[in-house]
C-alpha cells in the first residue's frame, strides 16, 4: 500500500499539478512538495507528491553499477 511511483510533472498551477507516466496522466497535489518544477520526476503516493526523485543521486548510483559491471562507457 505504500507503493509510490515516479511520474513526470507536466503541469503546475499552485498546489495542483498534472503528472504523467507512459501516457497516463494524473492530477496530483503538491502540498508536501511545492518546490517541484515542470520536468521533475516526482514520487506520488495516494494523489500527493511526497518527494522529488533526485536525478543526480540516481545517476550516481547507476554509475556505480556500471563500474561494477566493468565498463564505464559513455560518461
Amino acid at each position: 500500500m505504500c507503493l509510490a511511483v515516479p511520474m513526470k510533472l507536466i503541469e503546475k498551477k499552485g498546489k495542483i499539478g498534472v503528472a504523467e507516466i507512459s501516457g497516463v496522466k494524473r492530477e496530483v497535489r503538491l502540498d508536501f512538495f511545492p518546490e517541484a518544477e515542470i520536468g521533475d520526476y516526482i514520487i506520488i503516493h495516494a494523489g500527493f507528491a511526497i518527494q522529488k526523485l533526485d536525478e543526480k543521486d540516481a545517476e550516481e548510483t547507476l554509475l556505480l553499477f556500471k563500474e561494477m559491471l566493468g565498463g564505464v562507457d559513455d560518461e
Binding site: C2, H45, A46
Partner: peptide
C-alpha cells in the same frame, strides 16, 4: 496506512 499515507489524510 502508515506514515506514507497518513499525511495525505491529514491534508
Amino acid at each position: 496506512g502508515f506514515e506514507t499515507t497518513a499525511p495525505t489524510v491529514a491534508a
